[in-house]
Design a binder for these strands. Structure first.
Lengths: 160, 160
DNA sequence: TGGATATTTCAAAATTTTCTGAAAGCACTG
DNA sequence: CAGTGCTTTCAGAAAATTTTGAAATATCCA
């Protein structure tokens, strides 16, 4: 599933395994089950943990680290959305602002190509405004309260 | 921008160029401007055209084909969302259904691991239901009427 | 602290994705 | 229907991404 979601294949597989198995597994179990290398397993687990999709767990009498996957699909979706927003929207907004700064009032002092620059700026502003909207929409979806997404589904369902 | 959006770099650049320039360009102009090969330009233009992000245009007295980019950011977003839904949600739904079929009533006839299979099925059903919701949400966003997205932004803005 | 076990790192290898450029294909014109 | 100009195709090249595996590092416990 995750491979079409912009997530490395192995990382997606590790998460899928932990999600489906439901109970905590350790690195060796994961390696064996998925036929992947130790390095790969370690990296995938680290990423998944950074994202918050899995939690460390320990068994007493066992020094190995075990990992358990978040089980709530809504929460999983929220986490993935947050990450995608971070990767796909935030940098774009920053880039747009940088572009805008380059042709701001100060930069147009040269007064050459004035109207052309202004046309570009209009277009840029329109785009910045738009991405801002999408950004705040995404923000709602990932809000920790968790209300945004359910609300959207509910509202749009009715609004059809 | 588009490179973090799951779109090939060159394709994104071609679209950006056409969008920013605003007026139609032909293949040679695009090649020159972006320093890319003819094949690459042709393929990118084909994809963009398939998506509906650019339209063919002709100048009289000129046999070359010109391309003009869709100028409305909302429409651009809708098109990209439609494509991403097609690539990221639809196949997942199909895969989930396939999985579900494998462990459906017929398959459990063997009666072994019965409860384990049922637990998996519950999980699977939960996920299918969830992805269905997301899918219909996306459907609203890409609806040709174009109301879905604006509505969502409006509603959620108020709902904060 | 030493030794044993578990985890992380990272350069090189494998894989996947994307681009190139030459050749084939098409369509118009004389 | 041959010539010209433009577009598309696709096998191989290049680039980007991901994985491996062994060495380095960290952790635990006697």
């Amino acid at each position: 599933m995750g491979s079409s979601w912009g997530i490395p294949r192995t990382m997606a597989e590790v998460h899928a395994l932990l999600y489906i198995v439901g109970e905590p597994l350790n690195t060796d179990q994961i390696m064996a089950r998925l036929s992947i290398s130790r390095g790969s397993a370690s990296m995938s687990l680290k990423s998944l943990h950074d994202w918050g999709l899995i939690a460390r767990a320990h068994r007493r009498g066992d020094r190995k680290e075990y990992f358990r996957a978040e089980q709530d699909v809504w929460q999983v979706f929220r986490i993935i959305t947050r990450e995608r927003k971070r990767r796909e929207i935030d940098p774009v907004l920053m880039a747009l602002h940088e572009c805008r700064d380059l042709t701001g009032p100060r930069a147009t002092a040269a007064m050459r190509h004035r109207s052309e620059i202004e046309a570009h700026n209009l277009r840029l502003d329109e785009m910045i405004e738009f991405i801002r909207l999408i950004d705040s929409l995404a923000e709602q979806f990932v809000s920790p309260s968790g209300k945004g997404l359910r609300l959207a589904v509910g509202l749009l369902g009715k609004a059809v």
